[in-house]
Write a protein that binds this DNA or RNA. Sequence first.
DNA 1: TTCCAGGAAC
DNA 2: GTTCCTGGAA
Length: 213
Amino acid sequence: MSFTRKLLAWYKRNGRDLPWRDTRNPYAILVSEVMLQQTQVSRVLEYYPRFMTRFPTIAALARARPKAVMEQWEGLGYYARARNLHLLAKRVAETGNQIPDDPEELRTLPGIGRYTAGAVACFAYEKPVPAVDTNVQRVLTRAFAPKDVWALATKLTPRVGERAWRFNQALMELGALVCTARKPKCPECPVRSDCLTGRSVVQIRSRRSAHPR
DNA sequence: TTCCAGGAAC
DNA sequence: GTTCCTGGAA
């Protein structure tokens, strides 16, 4: 079985039910992706529903006062994200409230970098484009040690949008739940047999001393 | 108590 | 390459 098939089979059983995985609303996806930048899922779950209730549409966000937006963001950190999101909403509101579906266009918007552009294009519009965040970067680097992670991700991304959506979600989920930064759970990894790191005989556990204390 | 994880802007 | 923030791991 291929890497992708194993990954998708694993995701089907182990993927978490998250509010932004139930929707293709571009605004909802956008808000979740910006919140998820540098921020754990558990943390975002405390803010995302409230934010969406307070600002249900991009037009509502565009109309809001900066103070009201910052209040909703209070405690999430990296406040430039909130300022950029608000700015983005105002800019999009001027052009008919349409969030672009093209990664190149998305990247011209404030606070949208390479990753978030790919994520919105794929998760909202089911475009077959890669979305390499730190999780995906780590998974692909450990598995295949590529020279260029984005190039590899482009090759691996399924051509059918709906499948690309699941592939990208699954790669990130694997990075979040199994191929973690500190202690990867290789024994429970669905793609261990395809992975350079997972296949290596000696598993590097820790670089700490063998005799703490 | 320190250290680390995590995208975009500069 | 550094800065921006916070929670949680070590």
